[in-house]
Design a protein around this nucleic acid. Structure first.
Length: 115
DNA sequence: AACATGACATAAG
DNA sequence: CCTTATGCCATGT
């Protein structure tokens, strides 16, 4: 069963454009409450559809969770599908350079207002 | 209801 | 940079 909060969270994450990343806290805030950061991580961890490798993103439930990093740009060590390595590959695939398991937020941080 | 856990954030040492 | 400690919220036992 997907809760209201999860819906909001997934909805926000789905809006992150390719080539950009958003922090858990940012997603939480956009979803409605700044303090859901931890919950966002949990929600994504048990996320039903993590991402689509080569799929054409035809499904509305696709959630690009690899574009979500922590406040310092660090990747998720316990990334559900394949760990941090998988997340790295997915990001690199979108031209988001990953160095030392981190990304440069100055370059890739997603700013919703600029959509 | 109580307690433990987690893909977090922030502050402090 | 790293480790602790504290606070948050949602879940699972």
């Amino acid at each position: 069963m997907i809760s209201e909060t999860d819906m909001k969270i997934y909805d926000i994450v789905r809006q992150i454009p390719a080539g950009k990343v958003a922090a858990y806290g940012t997603v939480a805030e956009l979803a409605g409450n700044r303090r859901w950061a931890q919950a966002v991580g949990n929600a994504l961890h048990r996320n039903p559809l993590p991402f689509s490798l080569e799929n054409d993103n035809s499904s509305d439930m696709l959630i690009p969770c690899h574009r979500v990093v922590n406040a310092k740009g660090r990747l998720a060590v316990n990334f559900a599908a394949g760990g941090i390595q998988a997340q790295t590959v997915l990001l690199e695939r979108e031209n988001v350079h990953v160095v030392q398991n981190s990304v440069d937020l100055e370059l890739y941080a997603w700013h919703p207002a600029e959509e």
